[in-house]
Design a protein around this nucleic acid. Structure first.
Lengths: 401, 401
DNA sequence: AGCCTAATTTTAAGTCGCAAACTAAGGTCC
DNA sequence: GGACCTTAGTTTGCGACTTAAAATTAGGCT
């Protein structure tokens, strides 16, 4: 409740960080505007930005007239200051993407992958990262770090420990494995894929500008990234936000996690299709989950059964969302994940209505429910976001010469 | 994502605050120990504590030998520096209690109250606060503030707005009403009662020492106080933590909030008794809820029906707790509220087992489930905590002369 | 009385942000 | 085309901070 805390020239770091972040998120700005936005005096802004420019983190970017006086010089983060890599470890393959500091993609690399040993995955990651950096001709020294999104919970600590039942990982120290499989000593950041995707929506998607948001992700599985006071909420051991395994029908359908009545068993793609199968009383045409769900949605206007299954889905989903609303009281709910986007595109009204029916009036009135803007590919950008966030936070420690 | 932020001599305030809080929570400490605990240099500690002593916030409290050298002088917060008042506005009456800075109770005052207009309640509060201060002979000028816990959600803003359906309040600006009903201009702090009770458990009860805790409160209604990173989580408009109206049985029992299948409809006292009534197929003996629930628990060893109702209750409650575990990933769950304590005393094992059955293995392994230590009377102390927290936070702004 | 140890306080830097004074860079007007 | 206005950004001088190091206390021991 009152642990160690000090303060010396954290002041300066703090202000560097504030200014750099403001520039990063709110585009090019003049020193004058920075001063207004940050509340710092013009003198300090001048001083600090001078340092940032000297360090190469910030560059001037043209100027803009000011009615009648000296024109304002615009500043922005230097995209070429460094590069970051985002890795998306999925259940069926890995994606590795290289970005500059403004998170513009410079190169990408996909690799299908049947479930393999953690060690094999780690060395694949290491070599793919190396490849993507080399192929873009980016000097290794400008790589600020590598973010890795994984499909499971990540215990943050001295070294990240991954538990990902869907790919058979239990207690995998991925960070150590990747580090020892690669010659470069780039900083690694391992995080749950739902959280990185949520972070991406916050920075570039439907979450922009809000500070209390829940990003609900529905695909085969169901998860959520909870953003509280502007940051992704992790809880005591970073496994917070396991929305999919929240009980919504006490004693209901069995879920692959072993419990009964989890939300995932009703609104996860598998759960939806299984309910549809039972409702039709016969097998579904074969095909992958994604196209089968699309077929179900297509069938709804003609098929009573399909329509009913979707309606019920909207009901369960609305109740699940209402739980998030009641517990977290966010200002915005973002519906994402491939199944979430598909359902949302055709059923958003019903989902919203079901949410209203289950949420308390007051918190309900605070929220808007939106569709995600980035799609499931955002896991990699989100992962790449991690080293950038670290840079913005410590603002590239002054004087690390 | 990057709003206004400055920093000047916030530094000093910050350090005053750190030291004062450390002294408040970790009992009497020498300057030397303070230096270790806070990470500040001995010089600074000496300097800042000197100021705190001059301001009367801190006093010396004996000394303790140090093997062979100058003895350490102990410092502690001066309990007589100021006083705070905590008010518990309940559904059936109000409680007003006066405390010194160490939150030792000096006087208390209870007043039964049939549901009344907000204005009437406000003026009762105002006069009761005045009475309790006068009766203890405490000079009005030493009262640092008045905390008020209310049974409903509180929207924090320029002025607190209360929505408390159970007592028929909707959009009541309690803070304004109390302020205009009282001559004194003591700072008022209005907060949801569950949150103040949670705060009390955090400071003095089962929550001490942890920083991610959910305090589950079960009485007639069901609520929760969620503590994340050491602070009570409020969400966008402070109505977070409405655990009771979370859907746990989709399409289930109707709840007084209008929705179906809320947790409260199953494990709130009313819900329990109603299920018991239906299971017995005949009316219960008359009596207040509290004694009827006690009777139900007493009956369990002899009555199959009673035992079954309690078992089911433990099951629902465990599932509800598991939802909290999955979503918030706390390190500790504290079970409180009169019904929660009663159930917990006799059924804790079953509740824990049900929680395990519904929670994911990983977050489940992180938690301990404990009973609250303070009972429902803690709402008033918790409310009194608010002005104290404000004092610790801004550390009684240096130089307000 | 004199010495030893350990806790505080003083002293002497070195940082930082800010208000005020000052310089730079355009535009306007006569 | 030069005096003057307006706005942006820099420099200067100051007060407030924290800290390492030196100095000062306060007991205990011999």
């Amino acid at each position: 409740m009152a642990p160690k805390r000090t303060t010396v020239r954290d002041l300066r770091r703090q202000n560097r960080s504030t200014l750099l972040s403001t520039l990063f998120f709110d585009g090019p700005l003049s020193r004058y505007e920075l001063s207004r936005l940050s509340g710092l005096s013009a003198a300090t802004v001048s001083n600090v930005t001078g340092e940032l420019v000297d360090d190469g983190l910030v560059v001037e970017a043209g100027s803009v007239d000011s009615d009648g006086g000296r024109p304002r010089v615009l500043l922005r983060v230097n995209p070429a200051f460094g590069h970051v890599v985002g890795v998306d470890v999925g259940e069926t393959g890995i994606k590795v993407e290289l970005f500059d500091l403004s998170l513009t993609q410079l190169a990408a690399f996909d690799h299908a992958l049947s479930p393999s040993s953690p060690t094999a995955v780690a060395s694949l990651i290491a070599s793919a990262v190396r490849d993507v950096v080399d192929s873009a001709g980016v000097p290794a020294s400008t790589v600020l770090g590598v973010g890795i999104g994984v499909p499971g919970t990540v215990e943050q600590g001295a070294t990240a420990v991954v538990h990902a039942p869907t790919i058979g990982w239990d207690g995998v120290r991925l960070e150590e494995l990747v580090a020892s499989a690669s010659e470069s000593a780039w900083p690694l950041y391992v995080e749950n894929g739902a959280k990185t995707q949520g972070q991406a929506e916050m920075w570039f998607g439907a979450g922009r500008g809000a500070s209390h948001v829940v990003i609900a992700l529905i695909g085969s599985g169901v998860g959520a990234a909870v953003v509280t006071d502007g940051g992704v909420y992790r809880g005591a051991t970073s496994s917070a936000g396991e929305w999919g395994h929240t009980t919504i029908v006490y004693g209901g359908r069995p879920c692959r996690c072993g419990a009964l009545g989890c939300l995932e068993a009703y609104v996860g793609a598998e759960g939806i299709l299984d309910r549809y199968r039972k409702a039709r009383g016969r097998e579904l045409p074969t095909g992958d989950e994604q196209s089968t769900v699309a077929a179900l949605i297509d069938a709804a206007p003609r098929s009573k059964t399909a329509a009913r299954v979707l309606d019920e889905t909207a009901g369960y989903l609305g109740a699940g969302i209402a739980n998030l609303v009641n517990l977290f009281n966010p200002e915005r709910i973002v519906l994402g994940g491939w199944a979430g986007l598909a359902l949302g595109a055709h059923q958003l009204d019903r989902i919203v209505a079901a949410t209203r029916a289950h949420a308390l009036r007051h918190p309900y009135e605070q929220i808007s429910i939106e569709l995600g803007r980035l799609g499931p590919d955002a896991v990699a950008v989100g992962a790449a976001t991690l080293p950038v966030a670290a840079l913005l936070d410590r603002a590239a420690d002054p004087r690390t010469t």
